[in-house]
Design a binder for these strands. Sequence first.
DNA 1: GATCATGTTGACTACGTAGTCACACGGGAG
DNA 2: CTCCCGTGTGACTACGTAGTCAACATGATC
Lengths: 339, 339
Amino acid sequence: MSGTRRRPPGSTDVARLAGVSQKTVSRVMNGEPYVSDEIRERVLAAARELGYRRNTAARALNLGRFHRIGVVSLGSALYGPATQLIELERRARAIGYAFSVVHTLEGDEGGVARAMESLLEQGVDGIVLSDPIDGGQEPRIDPGVPVLSLGPLPGPSGPDVIVHRPSNEDAGREATEHLLGLGHPTVWHVAGPERWWASRDRVRGWRAALAAAGAPEPPLLAGDWTPASGYAAGRALAANPDVTAVFVANDDMAIGVLHALAEAGRAVPGEMSVVGMDDIPAAAYLAPPLTTVRQDFAASAAQGLARLVDRIEGRQDAPAPDVPTTRLVTRRSTRPYRP
Amino acid sequence: MSGTRRRPPGSTDVARLAGVSQKTVSRVMNGEPYVSDEIRERVLAAARELGYRRNTAARALNLGRFHRIGVVSLGSALYGPATQLIELERRARAIGYAFSVVHTLEGDEGGVARAMESLLEQGVDGIVLSDPIDGGQEPRIDPGVPVLSLGPLPGPSGPDVIVHRPSNEDAGREATEHLLGLGHPTVWHVAGPERWWASRDRVRGWRAALAAAGAPEPPLLAGDWTPASGYAAGRALAANPDVTAVFVANDDMAIGVLHALAEAGRAVPGEMSVVGMDDIPAAAYLAPPLTTVRQDFAASAAQGLARLVDRIEGRQDAPAPDVPTTRLVTRRSTRPYRP
DNA sequence: GATCATGTTGACTACGTAGTCACACGGGAG
DNA sequence: CTCCCGTGTGACTACGTAGTCAACATGATC
């Protein structure tokens, strides 16, 4: 039916209706001073009547800025990344920026560079790299806009790269210290994929806690965040009678670990303590309810974005406030070590 | 440091370097015919040298279209919605559209209307309403662009509203029929929130299957998609010895139900069969592994978006192909009824 | 040899907004 | 009374792209 999409009204249309110049409409819409109250009212009324909306394209063309933040995310429905994305969007909108996401595909070499290119093509003022970066091939494209990396970017960081590291390392340390504090001689770790920052940082925290306590460092097991990979790691752990405490890098893998241990007849927490990470909503309803580390994604997103926007708008970016944003949630999958 | 953001090169810069007119550069960048190979090469080389990228803002201003799809999503990290969002983005990018999401807050009255307004302000050619709509207050703003609703929109649908209903009803029917087919006298249902389309459609499918089999319809239990709400429903079900089969509207709630049943000492599937929905990655690793219905979000997103883009680009939209896109995944939480 | 289709290129212009600058008005300072 | 300044308003213009139309070359057709 309504095949002809009518041209939306512009500031000139509003101006004509209000009997003022286009420039005055622009002033009113931008809340500039030096407009009399009477005219302001008249313009606003005309705008309301016509259903006027500023044309972003024209605005962006004129100002040279898009007021848009782009995010490169690994396309996964994992709880952690999904939550982070939602918080980033909320935060961006709160400070007046639109929000674009591009998902790469796991295992897609060079996918990050292509995703960034795609964002630059659609027009963004800044880019957030939210998840992993390709292993060897760092994406050496010149973005021409500031980039916020939520993990340590390999290679020499350009002048426009901001690295904001969420508190994954603290989280790993906290989980490990909890288990050591319960008297376990050491703590095993089921990590995420090597190429994820979050994964590497959690490993780092685990190592640091072990070293600080003088505990021996067991070999590292690694999964891919999925319950299936946790299950595989869990079978290996179940077969080793020395294991009494495990820190699993996310709750999904912990589900797989718990399943494997139950299958092998190793009681949790009777024989083995397990700590997860993320505090997914299901964590409290597993068998047994899972002790886990929760991260405050909202705070982290706000901090990171604030730094990026400071850079975009040419302000000196304040040093990261660096308040710790993790919290251990104790449930029934851990208990003191009894030989 | 690099505080001054240099103006990015434009088509005129490329034209100057290549010794042609700006218009010719435009032609080359758009792959138009009637450009000699020699000039095409020269322009491409110049563009590469300068790092030229078309300016979306200018393009959008000139063409009157943004090549951007906006999505209003309820901000939850639930597996189903998150997966749907990712697939929508993939699909949109595949057909040359950029992608903007705005998350509303659960329980935010009028949030959908505000989210749509926010999308229109940033400039989109079409809007997808991906999750629920506010109960009574339908968002009667005039978007001026086509709207794709992934569920039945209340009230008189404007000429620009396309309703594309994913196969939630089929899914509900399939789950219920599976349990009836195992001989259970009837099937109980733990639904999602009333205001979600997905929830209402699954209920409809459940009802239809019961009616078709002549089975009595037990009272409806409702949760809010969370394991916690599933746990509450599970306690109620556990207390009722008549219950032998339950269809839970998503896997997260099913986790809560399983937990409640285990706590109450009701064996699954020994005394009670449970079917979930979504096939979250953890489903196979629960105790017991969960029988569930999987939806093909990729296909559904592709179909819906295709219709929306047809409308945006002024084509007659083809009728929905309507291939079924659900599949029952049988695991160990269901078994034949034995009185 | 004039005509004409076809291929190739460029000049000019519109798109809607906001920055720059100019101007008009009124009142207080000199 | 004049000068100047703060306030309020509008004319003109740039932003980068692509549509329109004109110009021109080439080679085929009548």
